[in-house]
Structure formats: structure tokens, C-alpha cells
Nucleic acid binder design. Structure first.
Length: 135
DNA sequence: GCCAACGTTGGC
DNA sequence: GCCAACGTTGGC
């Protein structure tokens, strides 16, 4: 099962809001590379929920409950979104600093392409992140 | 607040 | 089609 990472500025949409809302459309992606990754998501895939700008850490895990469909926030009709559902918070948030300091996570897209907001995570990297999240 | 990375726009 | 100017993201 593929694993992904999605970023949100908590000022705009936070993990707490995701939890409160349950299922929430993941809208606003306006980058072709990120959109391609969104389209590749399958129902049942998991994604790490990362807080950019404020916190700069992985705070929870979400699951794709609806695959790509037209983003209602996009007037042009060209961009897509998916629906995400909160699964669980991580016990210990995994900070960007900790990710950068972990040699086994070298080359992770989160660091290499800091502006990308949706990205795949390799199974190897995912295992390390899960381990770090357990504390 | 600054800056690097990178995408987009528009003149030529 | 090239490239300078500009805007946005996101880390520091």
C-alpha cells in the first residue's frame, strides 16, 4: 500500500480541524507535480499529515477515502482534490529537524523539494518515520 | 524579515 | 523559444 505525505499550514487547515471534521476534501493543490501525486492516490492509501511553517512536523496519519475528483475550490475545473479521513495522531510528532538529522531518511522529498506539498514516501522511509513517531 | 528554490508571466 | 521580472512557498 503506497504511503504519501501531505503538507498544510496549520493557520489555513490544521490537524485538529481534520480530526474535528472527520472526512475533509484536500483542496488547493495548484502544482502539476503535486497534482500528479494526488491523482496517483488510491482509496485506502495512508498519508502523513505535516504542518508546514508552524510546527514543521508530522502530526498525524490520514487515509484516502475518495480518489481524485475535480477540486470544488478551483474555478477552472482543471485541478483535482481527494478526500482524507483522520486515522490517528502520532504519539510523538516527527519534526523536520529530526528528519534531517536521521541518516536513514537521507534524500526524502520533504527535504529535497521543500516546496512540494504532496509527495510519495518510500516504504523504507515510512518504516523509519513510524519508528520515530512511536518515540 | 530574509532568502533560496522554483513556478509563472510577458516582452522580445 | 528565451529569459528577465515577479510571485509564492516554506525554512531559518
Amino acid at each position: 500500500m503506497p504511503v504519501h505525505l501531505v503538507k498544510s499550514e496549520p493557520d489555513a487547515f490544521s490537524w485538529d480541524q481534520q480530526v474535528a471534521n472527520g472526512i475533509e476534501p484536500w483542496t488547493g493543490v495548484r502544482n502539476h507535480q503535486a497534482a500528479a501525486f494526488l491523482k496517483a492516490m488510491k482509496k485506502g492509501d495512508r498519508a502523513y499529515f505535516y504542518h508546514s511553517n508552524i510546527g514543521k512536523e508530522i502530526v498525524g496519519i490520514v487515509e484516502v477515502v475518495r480518489e481524485a475528483y475535480p477540486d470544488p475550490s478551483d474555478e477552472t475545473g482543471r485541478w483535482v482534490c481527494v478526500d482524507m479521513k483522520a486515522i490517528e495522531p502520532v504519539k510523538h510528532p516527527v519534526t523536520l529537524a529530526a528528519i534531517k538529522a536521521e541518516p536513514r531518511l537521507e534524500g526524502i522529498s520533504l527535504v529535497r523539494q521543500s516546496r512540494l506539498s504532496v509527495m510519495p514516501i518510500t516504504p523504507e522511509h515510512s518504516a523509519v518515520i513510524l519508528e520515530m513517531a512511536k518515540g
